[in-house]
Simulated assay, not measured.
Amino acid sequence: MAGQNVRMMQRIVIDGIPVQREITSWESTPPKEKTGELGGSFIGGDIRTGVEKMAAKIVAKGLTPWVLKMVGRKAGSPVTVIVSESWEDEDGVVTAIQEFWTGRIATRERSGGVVGELPEDTLNLSLDESRRLVNGIQEWHVSRKASICDLGDGDLLAPHRLNVGMF
């Protein structure tokens, strides 16, 4: 049985530029289904109405100055991000995790500077697509533009795409 996990290494590629040692933290919101309330009956219920907005955040030291300015990225710019991690548990089991994001930069923020320390840069993203693989097995894949909605149990929109003549 797997024990406690430790992140051994991480790497983020932002529009083809790798960032590794500068990363302080990152996070993404896993796609989550949105429901609406069913009316018109004595007994209430819920129905799936979509997927909540997806977002991600990268916090790094020195991210804005050399990565984003180099490629001309600012708020509203499209961005592609690949997050790769390697974890190991206390039993020596190694796990590879990858997330793929495409979307737009919502905001870029820089923390207040402290003399003798690098400022932290925060890149907030609004995602159109989010995909996560754990040891090569897809955990989720949601793409707003391609109408793909796989929350882990298969693509919920596949039969609907066929019904309207999409792939």
Rank of each mutant, 00 (worst) to 15 (best):
L125E: 01
N124K: 06
K32I: 13
Q10Y: 00
K32R: 14
E117K: 13
A75S: 11
M54S: 02
E85K: 06
M9T: 08
V6G: 02
G112N: 15
W101Q: 05
A60P: 04
S77M: 05
A60R: 09
P119L: 09
D46P: 00
E85R: 07
D89F: 14
N124Y: 04
V19S: 00
T80R: 06
L68I: 08
V71W: 02
E109I: 07
E109N: 08
A55F: 03
L68Y: 08
K69C: 04
W26N: 04
E90I: 14
F42N: 05
V94L: 08
G62K: 06
G103M: 07
V51G: 02
N124L: 02
F42L: 11
L63A: 03
P78D: 07
M9E: 11
S28F: 15
V51R: 09
V6F: 14
G103L: 06
E85A: 07
I58S: 05
G92Y: 10
S77V: 06
I58H: 06
F42D: 06
R7M: 12
K69T: 11
R21M: 07
T102D: 03
S126Y: 09
G103H: 09
L68N: 04
E27Y: 11
N5V: 13
W87K: 04
I58K: 04
E85M: 11
I105T: 01
V114C: 01
P18C: 07
R21K: 13
G39Q: 13
F100D: 01
R73Y: 07
E90N: 12
P30M: 10
R110F: 01
P119I: 10
G40N: 10
I12T: 02
E85N: 12
E22P: 03
V83N: 03
D15T: 00
L118T: 07
T64R: 09
V93I: 14
P65A: 05
S28E: 09
I23Y: 06
N5S: 13
S28W: 15
P119R: 14
R7Y: 02
M70K: 08
W26I: 03
L125G: 02
E52S: 05
A56V: 13
E37W: 03
F100Y: 12
V51E: 02
G44Y: 06
R21T: 07
A106W: 10
E109W: 04
V19E: 00
V114K: 11
A106R: 15
F42Y: 08
P30L: 09
T102I: 03
A96E: 12
K69N: 13
A56P: 11
I43L: 14
G50P: 10
T24D: 04
I17G: 01
W87R: 04
T95Q: 11
T80A: 07
G62Y: 09
K57P: 01
S84E: 15
R7D: 01
I23A: 02
R11G: 01
P65T: 03
P78E: 08
S126W: 10
T24C: 06
E37N: 04
W66R: 12
E99Q: 15
K74Y: 15
G50L: 14
I23D: 02
S111A: 15
G36D: 05
D46C: 00
V51N: 05
V114P: 01
A55M: 04
D46W: 12
V93F: 10
G62L: 11
E88F: 02
